[in-house]
Design a protein around this nucleic acid. Structure first.
Lengths: 102, 102
DNA sequence: CCGTAGGTTCGACTTGCATCGTACCTCTGT
DNA sequence: ACAGAGGTACGATGCAAGTCGAACCTACGG
């Protein structure tokens, strides 16, 4: 599957979709972990060691990707996820700060 | 039922609970309508004329109340809902601005 | 060339949430 | 005293979302 789709432009991002993505405890935790690391940090999905199966992990990352929270980067061997920090700050100012403050 | 419970203190408010409450289209619409009116505006649940039954409307207002978004005020005859604007701005700065900007 | 690691997809199951109807409560106005 | 308006509580139902296992794909390393 080519990277291709699943990465909305900032203008296409829907606040309710983003809020729904963040409302799940596992997904919220992933975003919160990204915010504790330097801007632009890349991590594999597996590195979070979520307490669910591999397919469920993939599902959650798909939800976050389609909401616009993450960008999946293909590195040949392993794909990595990156928080779309600057784009989210521009589209939804203050939102990530709220997550960070938690 | 006395007003009593169901009104968390700002410190007790949970961001994920609030995000979940806002993720629903009907509830999001209610909060958005409050934001288009003057601070402190009181409205009955029925005044929103949500396209659902009376019991479902009550359910949605309960979710918003327990999340801390609204305060129900008993006026003898009819109870009214008020957006907890200042408290939310203090606890989750920028959150209501995001809803307002939508 | 094959095994392994990291992800995705698919179908099935299960839990959660929105929804409804009904019954009930509390005030108000008549 | 009673009827109606506005809300709440409860049980049941239907659909969406989270979860899983199994199969598959791609790239890398031995």
């Amino acid at each position: 599957m080519p990277d291709g789709e699943g990465h909305p432009l900032p203008a296409e991002m829907d606040l309710r979709t983003v809020l729904h993505a963040l409302a799940d405890p596992l997904r919220f935790g992933v975003i919160a972990q990204f915010l504790r690391e330097p801007e632009g940090t890349e991590r594999t999905c597996a590195s979070f060691q979520l307490p669910v199966s591999k397919s469920t992990t993939s599902h959650h990352f798909k939800v976050m990707r389609e909401a616009g929270l993450l960008r999946m980067v293909d590195h040949g061997n392993s794909r990595t996820a990156v928080l779309r920090g600057k784009e989210l700050d521009a589209r939804f100012p203050g939102l990530l700060d709220l997550v960070r403050a938690e």
